[in-house]
């Protein structure tokens, strides 16, 4: 990826840059590639694309790579990049924006488990207004297992089940597993917020 020559056409690049600038609220053009963000990024070594490169991809209008790279998915939202940026660009807001755009464009996530986790978390919150670990993780594990089994990844699914069962047993032993379901009385209010979010 580092050897790729980037093509730049100003008029073609502008609308994509404008969209991200407006949605994320970040001034991407202030980036002068000092790479302090890259130095501090905890997942940068694994993702290849570091925050500075992501900004570059957007500036040159490479929509496809900007929406399809590991940083967008593996970003742990630690906010180190934005805190250290001399120009106050919060790249984590940009990865969040790109993730939402990628979802809206129905692109296949590069790391389905991460995407499924966040979606499952929100399903659980929408349902009862609170995140119940057992409910959220059941939704998540069922979702990922279903997808992975359909691709024939039996070994991976079995491994994941064993890992999670072990953790659950440890939690039971230490009385850390909460079996009841916490529910908000105002679920209608919470659901109304979710409904409003859909139209935005």
């Amino acid at each position: 990826m580092s050897s790729t020559v980037l093509k730049y056409e100003a008029t073609a690049a502008q609308p994509f840059l404008d969209e991200i600038t407006s949605r994320s609220g970040q001034n991407l053009q202030a980036c002068y590639q000092c790479r302090r963000c890259a130095a501090g990024c905890p997942v940068g070594e694994e993702t290849g694309v570091t925050p500075d490169r992501l900004i570059r991809l957007i500036l040159v209008g490479d929509r496809e790579t900007a929406l399809n790279n590991l940083l967008v998915w593996k970003c742990v939202a630690c906010y180190t990049c934005g805190t250290r940026c001399p120009n106050n660009i919060q790249t984590a807001r940009i990865t969040e924006t790109l993730k939402q755009m990628s979802k809206a464009a129905h692109l296949e996530p590069l790391t389905p488990r991460i995407a499924d986790f966040h979606a499952s978390f929100m399903s659980a919150v929408r349902h009862l207004g609170r995140f119940n670990e057992l409910e959220g993780l059941t939704i998540y594990e069922t979702k990922t297992a279903g997808k992975e089994l359909s691709k024939g990844e039996i070994k991976g699914v079995a491994g994941e089940m064993i890992t999670q069962m072990r953790l659950a047993l440890k939690m039971i032993k230490k009385k850390r597993l909460h079996l009841g379901l916490d529910k908000v009385r105002g679920t209608a209010e919470v659901k109304a917020l979710f409904k409003k979010a859909e139209g935005r």
């Binding site: 939202a77 969040e96 966040h118 979606a119 929100m122 609170r130 979010a197 935005r200």
Partner: peptide, 14 residues
């Protein structure tokens, strides 16, 4: 209710 944690900011700004 749940604050939405990291998942909400990843999924939906609103």
């Amino acid at each position: 209710n749940c604050c939405g944690a990291t998942a909400a900011s990843k999924m939906n700004d609103f």
